[in-house]
Design a protein around this nucleic acid. Structure first.
Lengths: 146, 146
DNA sequence: TTGAGATTTTGAATCATTCTAAACGAGTAA
DNA sequence: TTACTCGTTTAGAATGATTCAAAATCTCAA
């Protein structure tokens, strides 16, 4: 079952929403809770189904809305791979993603600050970056499967 | 108007198709020609409309087919940004993409080999990469607009 | 407690992409 | 030449994730 948000988690949610002038709603709390509970980069549909267990009346559109709101206030990142359904990730530390083609799973890859710095340096001077997305695609060589 | 393929370009097309056991067709030549003629990362629809000028009967499905074929034989790369239409890019040198939010345009950014090397090093040992996608999103600070 | 404005809900609409089945075409064997 | 085979193209239908619209409901500041 899905744990409630702890004090710190609830605070960052409320803070982030307040900062961008949005309201706290049960739906938003639950969707955020679902994201934190299982950090496996779920799709909207997966979030929806997990959230339904706690709030049976919840609608899919609301999940879309909530997630969009979270992305808007920087609480959550979108993960896009090819044309697949968008996935969502509450890991705010700079990181890349590795998508395992055999399982479809997405793994977070910690991203050293130096590399990020170097990356921004390859841009022409007048290019101002807002977001950088780095995604690997490949396979994991079994044995110690992650 | 769209130039024909030069000798070298036609050769790489034929070679790539032959290597993966596929046929040379007028449609494929035209679609490839369109891609080389204007390297602005067109969407399928844009490619389709440009190609129609040369081959009025061409169908959209065929453009999808051709582009998929090219990606399959490594002649062309897909460029995905968020949920937008897939764009296509005949630049085979390793490079990243910068998407200008104000214009929607996508710019190629040359990618130094060292950075690529460093990037593959941050992966766990058993992760085998097939493709890496690096995309920046932001704005260009006018003045010397590119 | 109230009212304004934000949010949620349902179901319809959109739109890029994929699928299907029939027609076509190039190359090969007879 | 003719027939055959297979990959390709075509048109249109189908799919599926996402967005939209309008009405109902809720949140929060006053």
């Amino acid at each position: 079952m899905i744990q409630n948000l702890n004090k710190h988690e609830r605070e960052s949610l409320h803070e982030a929403l307040a900062k961008s002038g949005q309201k706290i709603t049960p739906q938003r709390e639950i969707v955020y809770t679902v994201l934190l509970a299982q950090r496996d980069h779920p799709t909207v549909d997966e979030v929806y189904n997990r959230a339904l267990e706690t709030m049976p009346g919840l609608s899919l559109a609301t999940v879309y809305n909530c997630l969009e709101t979270f992305v808007g206030c920087g609480l959550v990142r979108q993960v896009n791979h090819e044309r697949e359904s968008t996935r969502y990730c509450p890991n705010l530390a700079p990181h890349a993603h590795f998508r395992d083609e055999s399982t479809g799973r997405v793994h977070d890859i910690e991203l050293p600050k130096e590399i990020l710095d170097q990356l921004t340096k390859i841009l022409p001077a007048n290019f101002e970056t807002e977001t950088i997305e780095i995604s690997f695609q490949g396979r994991t060589k079994s044995s110690t499967q992650n």
